[in-house]
Structure formats: structure tokens, C-alpha cells
Simulated assay, not measured.
Amino acid sequence: MENQFQLTNSKEIIAYLAQQFPNCFTIEGEAKPLKIGIFQDILSQIDSNELLSKTKLRVALRAYTMSWRYLYCIKEGEYRVDLDGNNNDIITKEQMEHAQQQLKESKDKAKARAKEKRKSSKAPVKKPRALKIGDFVKLSLGNKPVKGQIIKLEKEHIKVKVGSGMELTVKPEHIITK
């Protein structure tokens, strides 16, 4: 019967490669520039059908070589390494510039995603002026909104009494008007 266990995600595959080829792959610390054509070398060294598919190996290698940690290690004049950690080709200026460009683009995308996430996670700010004491509202405090009644409006906070009798002081962005 065929082996049912297969490595499926990139992290598992890279961890496996780091275990099999510790002089080439690392999980932590500074990465080493990989020899061009390392994919074929890996296929010739391991029985890929048993543990991982070629497609998943390719995806994992792509993730590894596009990581910031890896892109930082691509420096002109440094040697690329083979599976045994032996020096191979020297990194050219063009290869280094390409890696730096990839790193810059990746960082810019990450910055844009973080900005978009912050922007979308902020609920629209409700101004306390639109609310008045005695209004029934819902509070966004966790997974489920909590019902409450406004008992005091302050400059930057709103005091709300919830069903259990507890009084909470919240920011306006946590108020969902009914």
C-alpha cells in the first residue's frame, strides 16, 4: 500500500529539507543563497513521490526564496550553496539587485496590507454628539455585541450600563447604535 503520509504545507516541507540538508536549508537565523537548479538536485536526492509532490516542493522553494530572510542573504560576491553546503556559483550584481527589488516590493505590499487592515478594522467613529443619555446601544466588545444603555457622555468616552448592571466606559468606536 502507498504511504498515506505526505508533507503538505510549505513550512513542513522546508523543515524536512532543513533536516535532510542542514548545510543548505535553515529554519532560523541567516539563510544561505541556494544554487540555481536546486529543485532538480532535491528531486534526485529524495524519493519525492513518497513524501511530497513536485508541485508542493516547488511552492515551498518559492516561499523560501521569496522570504525576507532569504532575500537579505543575496549579496554580490557571495557563494550559492548546493545541498551539501559546498560553494557553487557566485552571486552577480544583477542577481543582488533583483533580490533587493523583490524585497522592496514585498515590504511595500506588506505595508499596504497592514495599512488596509488597520483601516478596515477601525469601525466608523460615532461622535458622542449623535448619542444622548438614555439611548439603547450595542457594544462591540468581543465576538458578540452586548446590549446596554448610555448613562454618561464624556469627551472621549461613553459610560454604558449593560444588562448585568455593570457599568463600562468605552470609546465611541465600540458603540453600535440600535
Rank of each mutant, 00 (worst) to 15 (best):
V160D: 00
Y64M: 06
R129E: 15
R58K: 14
I27G: 13
G85A: 05
A63E: 12
L131G: 09
S121G: 06
Y79C: 07
Q101M: 13
E167F: 00
L7Y: 15
Q4D: 12
T26L: 07
E167N: 02
C73R: 06
L71G: 03
E116V: 01
L103R: 14
N88R: 14
V81P: 11
M96D: 06
K75Q: 15
Q40S: 09
K171Y: 10
N3L: 13
K56R: 12
K144S: 13
K159M: 05
A18M: 03
Y72C: 10
K35G: 01
M1T: 12
E50G: 01
I175K: 06
Q40E: 14
Q102N: 08
I14K: 02
R129W: 09
A15C: 03
F21M: 03
K32I: 09
L17C: 04
Q19C: 05
K117P: 00
Y16N: 08
T92E: 08
C73N: 07
F21N: 04
I91C: 07
F25V: 03
S48D: 06
P33V: 15
C24V: 08
E105V: 02
I175S: 02
E12D: 10
S140V: 05
P22L: 09
A114M: 06
Q101P: 05
G148E: 08
I90A: 08
T177E: 12
Q6I: 12
R113P: 02
R129A: 15
E76C: 13
